[in-house]
Design a protein around this nucleic acid. Structure first.
Length: 568
RNA sequence: UGUCCGAUGGUGUAAUUGGUAACACAACUGAUUCUGGAUCAGUCGAGUCCAGGUUCGAGCCCUGGUCGGACAACCA
């Protein structure tokens, strides 16, 4: 077998169904081989990990096929949209590492053109001004089995429609009194084809067009035409728009404009969290989480503050794949991508979250040694740093047990372990309080093991981390657990409150001791607290009082063994 | 209920478009290690929702069913 077939076959196999469509279009010379996509958020909320999948898909396609990707704000409903959201969306897309190369567009850029398109439809007798109320339209629309009853305004003359539509725009009518509707098929089994509303009257200021308009186009009427005007070749959206596709195509055909093609894929769901805008908004406004960038939220800004890297999110988007089947991706995969990335790049430091004092009884009082510590064993170029070592240290409370279970490799009376980077120490004594809780332990150290190795070649089973008591810096550490206690909080049956599944312990704040070098840690920097997990610097930090977020724990086979009862 | 869409190991995705089910994550075992991390090697695990049909051959095609989802806003 030749090397060429070995390489080309798997590459071909790994195309997702959208890439297959795109490549087929290129092969057939459709759109002159051009590929042009867009990411079209409505600026009415913050982006989340689900949007990240769509962003990676759209921009990824543009990059892969030497095409372009626009950023377009779908701002057709001024009552819900704000500049704040526009700004955050741009920041998030950029942070993820994508560039729309100045092609920042708005559906509102096309309001005038869209208006002219509507006049064209009226002239073609494909649209009419309707004076039915929303309720009337709804009841007269019928049901999937029962055809709609025609609006009494359906057969107005072109001139009358043109006149009325112009007066709608001119502001002569109050909100909701008139709509412009397409004249399509009242008996269609697809409810979207039963004379959908194209324009509604809303005397509301728009965040970009101000008071210029009081009629606003509906999504269905604006989206495809915006795609078409921008020359979008492949308009990718989520599954729920599948039923809208006939309408999308109807407009482009009726208007005789560039035929963008809509393709739907299954949206991303992740375990133990919610993705719906409504729920996220509710969590934020009700104070159940602190803000849109609360590190427990699946929002892009929340993930960023939590310590996620853009690379890890892009890798994740890549691995979840693209298909039309509904899916729920395990949060474990996201965390895997994160650890994989952070392992390569995060600097290692020592921090003790739950301190237990250790006195090295044979170590000189007042002496402080600066010990060499490796910054990142995965990256030789990361170099070394100095960490102070002295007579009194803190170690993790979990790393000492008076009566240790089987396979416990850490400290216990009479046991010798290595203090990372420094010396072997042996526990010779411990003190307890009235309740029997250990308050302090006494160890002796072996000066010959400086640097962490014994010249006589003896081995220890465990290596534990530590921090020098006098030099350590106090830090606030925020420990996060999943926001919800059940895997699919979004699935809660109608009528039940999804909030009852919120995890009351999703945030725990503690005070920890960290290496002195971390006193002025820079916001958002990722670190690995050795043996504990990845932590990043929260923007709440001030000089001398750093604040850390636990991004994700390290894989922990010990606690797993404990849980599985393998230490009995 | 009508139309549309989907169904492949625990979870996702793939299968050269009809050629004998693969990859990742998870799980498990071992090696290695100054992080019980990382790394390396390996193991387990579905016969493709069901029933028929076409075919030398079906996860891919056809028929009928089952289950799940979307749609019936002047939201997107």
């Amino acid at each position: 077998m030749s090397e060429i077939t070995d390489k080309t076959v798997p590459e071909y196999k790994s195309l997702n169904f959208i890439e297959q469509i795109v490549e087929e279009d290129i092969r057939n010379g459709k759109n002159e081989g051009r590929v042009h996509t867009r990411f079209p958020p409505e600026p009415n909320g913050y982006l989340h990990i689900g949007h990240a999948k769509s962003i990676c898909l759209n921009f990824g396609l543009g990059l892969k096929y030497n095409g372009k990707t626009n950023l377009r704000f779908d701002d057709t409903n001024p009552s819900k949209e704000e500049q704040e959201y526009v700004d955050s969306i741009k920041e998030d897309v950029r942070w993820l590492g994508f560039d729309w190369e100045g092609r920042e567009f708005y559906a509102s850029d096309y309001f005038e053109t869209l208006y002219e398109f509507a006049q064209k439809l009226i002239r073609k007798e494909l649209a009419y001004v309707c004076e039915l109320s929303a309720e009337q339209i709804s009841t007269m629309r019928g049901t999937p089995n029962v055809p709609a009853t025609p609006s009494p305004f359906r057969e107005r003359s072109v001139d009358e429609n043109l006149d009325l539509f112009g007066r709608m725009r001119a502001g002569e009518f109050p909100d909701s009194s008139h709509t412009l509707r397409a004249k399509i098929d009242l008996a269609s089994p697809n409810m979207h084809m039963r004379d959908p509303v194209l324009y509604r009257i809303m005397h509301v200021d728009h965040h970009r067009t101000g008071t210029a308009w009081c009629i606003y186009p509906m999504y269905d009427y604006a989206h495809g035409q915006s795609d078409s005007l921008e020359g979008i070749t492949h308009s990718i959206c989520t599954l729920e728009f599948e039923v809208h596709r006939p309408l999308y195509e109807w407009f482009l055909r009726a208007l005789e404009i560039f035929p963008s093609r809509q393709i739907e894929f299954a949206r991303l769901n992740v375990t133990y969290t919610v993705m719906s805008k409504r729920k996220l908004l509710e969590l934020v406004t009700s104070g159940l989480v602190k803000a849109w960038d609360d590190p427990r939220l699946p929002t892009i800004c929340g993930l960023r503050r939590r310590g996620y890297t853009p690379q890890s999110i892009r890798e994740f988007a890549d691995r979840v794949g693209v298909a039309k089947r509904e899916n729920v991706i395990s949060i474990a995969l996201l965390e895997h991508c994160l650890r994989e990335d952070l392992n390569k790049r995060a600097l290692r430091v020592m921090a003790v979250l739950n301190p237990l004092k250790v006195v090295i009884t044979n170590y000189p009082e007042g002496k402080v040694e600066e010990i060499d510590a490796v910054n990142n064993p995965e990256d030789a170029e990361a170099g070394k740093r100095k960490v102070p070592f002295s007579r009194e240290l803190y170690i993790e409370r979990d790393d000492f047990i008076i009566d240790p279970p089987k396979k416990f490799y850490r400290l216990a009376p009479g046991r010798e372990v290595r203090l990372r980077y420094s010396y072997f120490v042996t526990c010779v004594d411990y003190k307890t309080d009235a309740e029997g809780n250990v308050t302090e332990i006494h160890c002796t150290y072996d000066p010959a093991t400086y640097g962490g190795n014994a010249p006589d070649g003896r081995k220890v089973q465990g290596t534990i981390h530590w921090v020098s008591a006098a030099e350590a810096v106090k830090a606030e550490v925020r420990l996060y657990e999943p926001l919800f206690m059940i895997e699919s909080p979004e699935d809660v049956p109608e009528g039940e409150d999804y909030k009852q599944n919120l995890n009351p312990d999703s945030l725990k704040v503690i005070t920890a001791f960290v290496e002195p070098g971390l006193a002025d840690a820079v916001a958002l920097t990722n670190y690995q607290f050795e043996r504990l997990g990845y932590f990043n610097v929260d923007p709440d930090s001030v000089s001398g009082s750093p604040v850390f977020n636990r991004t994700v724990t390290l894989k922990d086979s010990w606690s797993k063994m404990e849980k599985d009862g393998k230490t009995q």
